[in-house]
Design a protein around this nucleic acid. Sequence first.
DNA 1: TTTATTGT
Length: 297
Amino acid sequence: MQAGRWLVPGLSLALGAGLGAGAVAWLNRKASPGMGGLWSRLPVLPVAAAAAGPVVPTEGPGELAKYGLPGLAQLKSRESYVLCYDPRSRSAMWVIEQLKPERLRGPGDRQTCGFQEDDSVHVYHRATNADYRGSGFDRGHLAAAANHRWSQKAMDDTFYLSNVAPQVPHLNQNAWNNLEKYCRRLTQTYHNVYVCTGPLFLPRREADGKMYVKYQVIGKNNVAVPTHFFKVLILEAPGGQIELRSYVMPNAPVDENIPLERFLVPIESIERASGLLFMPNILTRTSNLKAIAPGAK
DNA sequence: TTTATTGT
């Protein structure tokens, strides 16, 4: 594989963004063999600007991060949830929330809420309302608004587009909505209900017999349309037992008459597909785990 | 009831 060849299409993107930003210097560096002069054309921030930052040691192991690291986990802790942002998909990797019966009721009013850009995300990696407009997709909550009626602020926080993913309207308004209602109902039976929700981008076999991850992107920010969504429920029963239920639904119209149990999947399949791990965290917290697997009543 | 979008 020739790196130079497949890097070139991305170069025009980098140049466009760099020129638009204004504060651009040109890195004058001898072209290394095989790079085809690419380095000499890449825009970088002026060194003075980078050096102004206090953060990184200039000696020892930290020196390789002298000019900063290009990305770190983006955790957003809000009134109603904690989420991990995925700048590549312009959405969340996962959102975790705690459901309690008393939090399901209160002054929170959906009518006063509006979906909002998340200003804490860099504009390059941020979804906007314009991206969704006319796309044919709903702005589907990951942490649901109705889970947080206990405070207007808590409900408002669910309307950040970082807590949203493009969702097929029929799914959002029917089967997925039913799954969310079911989660709220579980607060009547269980002392504590933890819900972790996120998108999946699952590989699929194409006509040539090979596996590909293929997904649509919408808007000028290329917001990724998930192929599926998952929900992992951690339920604390009154007796102290912990129950685990994990669901996956395709981002497609789903007949709402199909029982929710049919969407149960082994937690391991979500862990393998998502790159996330739930079980080690759960197991260190309990020796009393009951996993509700597919095929359960 | 809750999930939304679009148009005026």
